[in-house]
Simulated assay, not measured.
Amino acid sequence: MTDTERAPVVAGLCVLDTDHPGREHLTSLRQYYTAQAQDCADAAYEVLGRPLDLDSPQHLQIALFEELDLPLTTASSDQGYSTDSDALQELFAATRHPFLAHVLDRRHALHMCDQLTTRLTGALV
């Protein structure tokens, strides 16, 4: 996590520490990471030249291995080649392809949204 990504999270945690009704701030964090995820998706669409369902392993496989002609990842047992985070991290390390950077950044933003805002918001009673 970069300092830029860390700052709103730290601010949110400080609000929780000093101002228990920090629900509004956590809502703004969720909106921040949701917008960041959408920006990453839009950037991925631009690199690919079309929109796709970034949550679909089948759509990612077509984009990565057929359209972008990237090296194949490890075969998964039921759905062709793996598009899980570890496989995409390895593929990105090998290729440094910008489409993969945007997909991974989007996944990170969605993870941050879920882990650091949705769950913390639910913890505020």
Rank of each mutant, 00 (worst) to 15 (best):
V9H: 06
L16Y: 08
D17K: 03
D17G: 12
D19C: 12
D19V: 13
H20R: 13
G22L: 08
L26D: 01
T27L: 15
Y33H: 08
A35D: 15
A35I: 14
Q36K: 14
A37D: 02
A37Q: 05
Q38W: 05
D39P: 12
C40F: 06
C40Y: 04
D42K: 12
V47I: 15
V47W: 06
V47K: 08
L48E: 09
L48K: 01
R50M: 12
R50S: 10
R50D: 00
D55W: 00
Q58F: 12
I62N: 01
L64T: 05
L64H: 05
P71L: 02
L72P: 15
L72W: 00
T74S: 05
T74C: 02
S76W: 13
S77Q: 11
D78G: 07
D78M: 12
Q79P: 00
G80W: 00
Y81D: 07
S82H: 08
T83N: 04
T83G: 02
D86I: 14
D86C: 09
A87G: 02
A94G: 00
T95D: 04
R96E: 06
H97F: 06
H97P: 12
P98V: 09
F99Y: 08
F99R: 03
F99N: 03
V103T: 07
R107Q: 09
H108W: 05
H108A: 15
H108I: 06
A109D: 00
L110A: 04
D114H: 15
D114K: 15
Q115P: 03
L116Q: 11
T117Y: 03
T117Q: 04
T117G: 09
T118K: 12
T118M: 14
L120N: 10
T121S: 11
